[in-house]
Design a protein around this nucleic acid. Sequence first.
RNA 1: GGCCCGUUCGUCUAGGGGUUAGGACAGCGGCUUUUCAAGCCGUUAACAGGGGUUCGAGUCCCCUACGGGCUACCA
Length: 472
Amino acid sequence: MASKVRVRFAPSPTGYLHVGGLRTALYNWFMARRHGGTFVLRIEDTDRARMVEGATENLIRTLEVCGLKQDEGPYLQSERREKHLACAYELIEKGYAYYCFCSKERLEEVSKNQQLNKQPVMYDRHCRDLDRTTAENRAAVGDEHVIRLKAPLEGSIVMEDLIRGRVEIPWAQVDDQVLVKSDGYPTYHLAATCDDHDMEISHVIRGEEWLSSLPKHLFIYQAMGWEAPQFAHLPLLLNPDKSKLSKRQGDVAVEEYLAKGYLPEALVNFVALLGWNPTADREIFTKEELAALFDITKVNKGGAVFNREKLDWMNAEYIQALPMDEYLRRLSEGGFLPEGIEQERAARIVKARLVKFADARELIDEAVNALPYEAPALVWKKSDAKIAKARLEGVRAWLEGKDETWFADVPRMEEETRAWIAEKGWSNGDTLWPLRVALSGREKSPSPFELMFVAGKIETLVRVDAAIKKMQ
RNA sequence: GGCCCGUUCGUCUAGGGGUUAGGACAGCGGCUUUUCAAGCCGUUAACAGGGGUUCGAGUCCCCUACGGGCUACCA
């Protein structure tokens, strides 16, 4: 790789961090970490009309939650406007850009006709050959104008992409792109190119949607006499129907996943493996491990469907791996843990079956609160009412003799109770089933030992008594 | 419409001329089991199609089909 790796993540502040954006950020971060480089954050806020209040702060916060802290920045592109404009004027000076005074109406007219005649839709270069001095005077006087790139008319450009290899695009296809808008702000093409050069970016890693405008960017580098960085255009993230991942077909914002209680580590792990994988029969990696193995040239060319089922699986894996106190802390800080001692105990036993934190409330509720039920529910399928009642009475006497601390130790409760059942010559089924239903009121539930742990001694006995009474 | 990019199990992918085409998620089956979940074991399932090149193509080339991106004074 180049001697000094400098990469950047350059989102526009449109309100939230898109999961595709997260992956782009991640790959840039990997690249920086892998080569001892610098990860720069730049906010592309040149479109004043699309600015969203608080979006930038939110973007930075979300990246940080995901463990992606920039080494440099954030730079605000809007604050670098003077540099961009200077660049535009230099391009005009060198004959690689020009003033354009065409009205929006004329432009619409032109493209309408092109569409009708099945011609490629692009600017007809009406102002391309205006006399420069005249144009400059008009501009100085305040005539509304834009500045356009003076793209070559013939031949084609051959480009080298780290992921796709050689790409060739005929210049006839490349429009005289607007570089400076009539509001005096630069467009992405000018600003990004200019900034990437200024910030000495060595590798531009961005979404595939930019591939077709790469000729314009390369042309600017060349016209300015700058050395161009290397480029890598990432494949898109897709909906299940293979269209570009969009809001309509499910969540696309990282914030939404976080709000649902997906762990940032899990989301990062999952997203990182969409389009690239370190060639190992393994799925769970920390981002540091991934960074150490990262190779931009091994990134897939084809788009990847964002498969939520696998995300769920992976998130559950991460929850399982969390130490209990860490798990409770995060659950609580995320606002997913209802108040109460039983609730906290339930949170403990529910951890193993939790897919995402947002599901915790319901699972906890099921573990804490018993449902109303009818007496027949207490009878195990291979048993009968008489046995069920006898077992319940036996269990009650057994539990009566235990102290509160005994109920705080699930493995011990289970071990000793099973031994006791065996000693009695009873079966686990005809004993444990009635106990479990007595405690939960449900056909399906956590184990009776877990439920006793949640309920505590007093409440356990109350529920067992109630069950016995139902059997009268 | 034009230009560009892409195409291995349903999904994420491994694979860079010689493989029984491997793994993961989901699915299915079984084991375990007081229920559910988990866990463990097993299993279904793919090189888009057609031409080349080659002794030999998932791997290289071409064509077609399909999908996607761009085609803004948005990024």
